[in-house]
């Protein structure tokens, strides 16, 4: 498991549920409180232990937490770099949805050793997308559901985003665009601030 996954979980718990929540979760999961290194490999068992501990502490389900994590990755100021990298995917939300097939490739460009399963996108009707995520990374469907909901907001688009239960074939996410001009899109300058964008 890539350290980035656990690191983002740590940042999410700290920023959304408070430092004391992270400290309790880290202790319950047997992780040093100082935290996880994003660029060092991580035992997948640690991810699972962190999620169980976080679910027990917050009273949310694992899927609920992972969806919130997805929203956090796009919308929290600390994660501005992630949101910017995602916005490179498309001019509008529909364009972005179509580009999700490229997501594993984009992630690989950014972090070569972070491997995501294949994603296929079918536009079944205008404004109606069916996203299929191949199996391989447990919980990815829930995180991506949160990411998509936050990205729709970011683009100022009103969309219905629902996830079908995980099956052996992977996860299906249904995206129905209701109103692409629902709200003002958040500004995105193609060339961001130079230097460290984080």
């Amino acid at each position: 498991m890539h350290g980035l996954v656990n690191r983002s979980l740590q940042c999410f718990l700290q920023d959304s549920h408070g430092l004391s929540c992270w400290q309790a979760v880290a202790q319950a999961a047997g992780v040093a409180e100082a935290g996880i290194e994003a660029l060092l490999p991580c035992d997948p068992a640690v991810t699972s232990a962190l999620l169980d501990a976080a679910a027990a502490r917050t009273g949310d389900s694992r899927d609920g937490l992972l969806e919130d994590l997805g929203i956090y990755l796009v919308s929290h100021p600390r994660m501005a770099a992630v949101r910017r990298l995602l916005r490179f995917g498309g001019v509008g939300f529909a364009d972005f949805a179509r580009s999700l097939e490229d997501l594993p490739g984009r992630v690989r460009l950014a972090v070569p050793d972070l491997v995501l399963p294949a994603i296929t996108v079918a536009e079944t009707a205008p404004g109606q997308f069916r996203l299929r995520i191949a199996p391989g990374v447990a919980g990815l469907g829930a995180v991506l559901t949160g990411v998509l909901r936050a990205m729709a907001d970011d683009y100022g688009t009103l969309a219905l985003i629902e996830r079908d239960d995980d099956t052996k074939q992977g996860v299906l996410i249904r995206i129905d665009l209701l109103d692409t001009g629902f709200a003002q899109a958040r500004a995105f300058a193609l060339a961001g601030p130079s230097g460290d964008p984080a």
Partner: peptide, 28 residues
Amino acid sequence: LSECAFAPTDLAVELLFLDEARSAVMAE
């Protein structure tokens, strides 16, 4: 300039993506 300033065949936007991803990872 925005994404629309470039033709879809132009890799300019991918280059900017890569540059930004690289500097984020480098900073980390």
